[in-house]
Design a binder for these strands. Sequence first.
RNA 1: GGUCCCAUCGUCUAGCGGUUAGGACACCGGCCUUUCACGUCGGUAACAGGGGUUCAAGUCCCCUUGGGAUCACCA
Length: 466
Amino acid sequence: MSEVRLRFAPSPTGFLHIGGARTALFNWLLARKEGGKFILRIEDTDVARSTQESVDAILEGMTWLGLDWDEGPFYQSDNFPLYREFVEKLLASGKAYKCYCTVEELEKKRELALAEGRKPKYDGTCRDLKEDRPGVPYVVRFRSPRDGETAFDDLIKGRISFRNEELDDLIIQRTDGTPTYNFTVVIDDATMGITTVIRGDDHINNTPRQIVMYQALGYPVPQFAHVPMILGADKTRLSKRHGATSVMAYRDMGFLPEAVVNYLVRLGWSHGDEEIFSREELIEKFTIEAVGRSAGVFNPDKLLWLNAHYIKAGDPARLAELLLPFLAERGVDPASGPDPVAVVRTLQERSRTMLEMADGAIFYYRPDFEYDGKSVAKFFTPAGRELLEELAAWLGTLTDTGHDSLAALFDGLCAGRGVKMKDVAQPARFALTGGAASPGIYEVIGVLGRDETVRRIRRALDACRS
RNA sequence: GGUCCCAUCGUCUAGCGGUUAGGACACCGGCCUUUCACGUCGGUAACAGGGGUUCAAGUCCCCUUGGGAUCACCA
């Protein structure tokens, strides 16, 4: 019974965003490191704003990142009877009370308090009401202690304490009988036996309110770890203005899940001078205490660098699989050309995203691309054309398109003509790829194959008569 | 406004009283080179300010300043 139990508890009102993913990741890592349980709970008490599409999107995001959960997903909407039970219990013991104040009255008081520069907290009008008012709509409020202080030792931020007078009697059950967030988290975390709550630090102010409820209910208070939020380049909360915030959007932009995981964990956490962490290393080395206390700026450049690293180190066959949808998006049918795995090998070192790789791969599958005039003028000079003619002739007799044999062929051609490698390589590259930048010319020829190579050179020669 | 949190290069960070303040991304140069990249070598760049404590402070304490979060019948 000493195993750690952690949870990720998103509310399904949108996709899984970068910040939520990092919170989930930290929870998952700690659970895996400690050999505990990772529980997924959907906080959908706000029925109006919660959607099934959001639930699906969140699950999809977590799955893509490889964050598997041991229990759940549980839905708070399934627990309404349970919450009701606890409300009754608190009511019966006097730890909660019915409040008949209307929304309008409360709103007025709040505005008045704000106008007078006071803290806009509930004034306790119904706190000591002697009897019920049958038939009158009410909410249930938690009777919060007014003296003393509530403190906790945050695993990340250290000791944090609040004077109880700052806490007001918050609503735990609405007029319509549904429970509210601060109450349901406590009930769920308590009954699910959550030992450590890792969540965004925007919840710090909720923590003391929740702690007094654990105490009133007689449940042990879990440990808390409040992780700092993620900022955009302008140091304001990360939002759509800063670019994509949805985890899945990163997949669609050609990022690898291991790169996103690596980036997210390093944003606010570090282990000496190390930058690259495999999943196994993360599980081994992660500690919640090493998570930084201050907010961090999301840096797309570094994510890109990590992604490039993982593409370079990735298994070509797997990358080829991942490349297919991007190729399809561009109307490219891989069956019409060389083996995608071979293509991937030539592009791994020069692609930062799968999307870039797809763009770089297109020429392999488009035998009929156009040649732009400027480059034609530059490469298809009389001398250039002559070289290409000769190259095509030499290539036509080649039986092996391996690197060494091609190198020998090009060397021979250069020596015979008394030209530099680039004098023949650049026109050839242009004829074969339609551009001035591409993988190594030997690699391109190797992937294209002898016949297609010769065909493309002849086609270029025909198309670019000046 | 109250409460709470935060503060080392542009960015992510190392540092846990004694360091030429280290690494990474980005940026700028050199090298490599058939292009673009990769790689490699080198460079620019930081302790917000002020008081303490101490033989000694980026490291501990306080204040200031500056950021941020939160104060809902949202979560």
